[in-house]
Amino acid sequence: MDDQGLVEDRGLLVPAGAAARDAYALDIDPERAGWGYSSLRVLELPPGGSHLLAAGDSEWLVVPLSGGCTVRTDDGPAVELLGRTTVFEGATDFAYVPRDAHTQIASGAGGRFALAGARCERRLPVRHGPAPEVPVEARGTGNCSRTVRNFAAADAFACDRLIAVEVITPGGNWSSYPPHKHDERRPGEESELEEIYYFEFERPDGYGYQRVSPSRPGGADVLAEVRSGDAVLVPNGWHGPSIAQPGNAMYYLNVMAGPGQEREWKISFHPDHVEGYR
């Protein structure tokens, strides 16, 4: 069986539209992914549109992909999100919605909004994450350079379990390199985290490639062409590289959560690729 057949059989590549539901252009929950914690929805609102989000047993981040919105919960202050025109414009402000909340997301001009979620135990307060406070990191060198917006990294913004970051990879560059994994609990060395990659490209005809290789017999194995609106599920395995088409920048949103008592991102690099790179 070739790699593409393996992807389709295991359902790790989620093409744009394949997991659409109601107002969501993408709706991946733990049941759809076959794991315990991580979720991602992409909400599309027309001008003047609104949507009711029942948080349930998960905490959520409302992250504008394009446009702005107002986030109102039943027991917290309203959060006004200025948002952005596109994900390539820069970091955006965002809102934290706690578990068990009932929330209205409304947009006067319309827009698209990522809802990154994680099943959790603690109920934290509603909060606004201002765009100027998002830590932005230049990672890698040469044709492996990329920009990482650590808006909800473990040490940047308080959540119970959820970790979320954005990456901009210039056209022709590799990111998520060297390949790395976080699928074992090894205190102080590696976290156990499920992960979702969600992709967009600067131009409509853009594409890239995503690799996930097994870290154990029968583990996740993906080599997929990805386009705007596609997602890749990473339940385990070495993930990377993520490769952008020359001349066309690639965006991806990473959503992670797992069973560990500590909310942390500890990774192991693939030993066959790290020598000479770091």
Rank of each mutant, 00 (worst) to 15 (best):
R10W: 03
G48T: 15
N254V: 06
A156T: 12
P135C: 01
N150P: 06
A138T: 11
D74T: 15
G171I: 08
E184V: 00
E189M: 14
E190Q: 11
L193W: 13
P30Y: 05
G171R: 06
Y251I: 09
V71Q: 08
G142W: 07
Y198G: 09
M1D: 06
G247C: 03
W174L: 06
C69W: 12
I105R: 05
R203D: 04
G206W: 01
P241I: 10
H273C: 03
D75Y: 09
F88D: 01
A23W: 11
A106W: 01
P178I: 03
A164T: 13
S39V: 07
P98R: 03
A19C: 15
E200Q: 05
Q261V: 10
A18K: 08
L12P: 06
A54R: 12
I243Y: 08
P235D: 01
R72Q: 02
H182T: 14
P217I: 15
A91K: 05
G117L: 02
L61F: 14
A91R: 09
E8S: 08
Y96R: 08
H182I: 11
D155H: 14
G17H: 04
P170M: 08
F201N: 04
R32I: 06
G240A: 00
H180N: 08
V274T: 14
V226M: 02
G237F: 05
G171N: 01
P46K: 10
Y207V: 04
G117Q: 04
D160T: 00
Y209W: 14
R263H: 04
A109N: 02
L233W: 01
T169K: 06
P241A: 09
V71G: 02
A101D: 05
L61E: 11
T70E: 11
V42A: 00
A19S: 15
A244N: 07
A152F: 13
G188H: 04
E192Q: 11
R161Q: 10
E44K: 14
